[in-house]
Design a protein around this nucleic acid. Structure first.
Lengths: 212, 212
DNA sequence: TAGATTGTTAATCGATTAACAATC
DNA sequence: TAGATTGTTAATCGATTAACAATC
């Protein structure tokens, strides 16, 4: 069923709501109206209500939203209530950095294996997570359930490794390589193109201070 | 002058055009039509022409676009033809990783200093880039021209450090901390919220394989 | 109950796509 | 010149904002 597809714009805002609600919880806030949240987040109250109502009626007229309840519900919508075992492909600087992120585990994203082509890294580990050679990948994926693959490899290796991942049942790729991956329809790719991000910054820097 | 503000959506697409054009150059392609580029990039030809015409008429009727020329022009639009000295705040894993990125320098983004609060790091360096203590930051910014500050610090330090940066004339912040920064209008912030990105992936993973 | 605030419909705004005349 | 393809205007589509009736 196609159903009413939620727009990409809405989905991209969900983590931000989640983050702000988390902060409100830390501050001990129990309820909040869309108007108040609007002020804090610098978005319109209308947008907040529209966004949330894509997923259900979480609020109550005359009261607003219960912060804890809304936080939990958005967490569920984001899939944070279940485990997401991950593997990292590429044990370079970035791979190591992501393997060391403690924040992920709070949210049930756990790295269960790291893969590289450099034989000098074989047998090493990061926080107890073993670094294995890429040729072990298919066997590893048969023996272990991994949902998400993180790609922190050079762009020229991305295509061939993606194929291996797809063939072995990986359904989601968090891609840090500077290429767009070609995958079947049922495989999800989320790109983090750092250099694109930096260029956007550079654009704004170069062009903003000209006008005005 | 407000002028015809280029939409954010268009700007976010520019680096992607730039990337594909760079690949075409590597492949020795000299000219390309919007129709052909459309096929490669999986966007409409109409959008390509509309996007580019925000900045000028780079093509030629009956011919298409000269790849090298268009690449250079987009590079200029993105501000890649001038130097962008950067500093990194936070010499943790991520700070080190970014300091080590060689790709940036090709494009005239150069890291000139790294700052941290951990006294054990004082005097150390990354690829010759000195790690200094945060209290040296104001003096450093007076003596050296830095355009972009990269924030790879814990979120609770982000607000106070941002204030110091703004007071000392930094006009652009590449923010990896998990908070939204409050800055004056003339300061540009580009966020890289990795956990937001991972949650978006998790959302799609959780919700996509249900329908269909 | 009266007041507040949601959920939701309608209006507006902006971005994408289609179409085609201009022109190389 | 004829053919190809741009630049640009017009049409469509989607997302955001405004408004308000429903309801706690």
């Amino acid at each position: 069923m196609e159903s009413d597809r939620i727009s990409k714009a809405v989905i991209k805002r969900l983590p931000r709501y989640y983050r702000y609600l988390g902060e409100l919880i830390e501050e001990g806030v129990e309820r909040i109206s869309s108007a108040e949240l609007s002020r804090i987040m610098h978005v319109t109250a209308s947008q907040i209500r529209q966004d949330l109502n894509n997923f259900g009626g979480f609020g109550q007229q005359g009261y607003g939203y219960n912060v804890n309840y809304l936080y939990d519900e958005i967490g569920k919508i984001l899939g944070l209530d279940s485990e997401h075992p991950m593997i990292i492909l590429g044990a370079g600087n970035l791979g190591h950095t992501l393997a060391n992120f403690r924040g992920f585990e709070k949210r049930s994203f756990r790295v269960i294996g790291i893969f590289d082509i450099d034989p000098r890294l074989a047998g090493q580990n990061v926080r107890g997570i073993p670094i294995m050679m890429i040729d072990r990948l298919p066997a590893f994926l048969k023996e272990n359930h991994a949902e998400i693959a993180i790609l922190t490899i050079p762009k020229d290796q991305a295509a061939s490794l993606t194929e291996i991942l797809v063939q072995n049942g990986i359904k989601a790729i968090w891609n840090f390589a500077h290429v767009d991956l070609e995958v079947p329809d049922d495989v999800i790719v989320e790109n983090v193109h750092l250099s694109d991000s930096l260029m956007t910054l550079s654009y704004n820097l170069t062009n903003t201070h000209r006008e005005g």
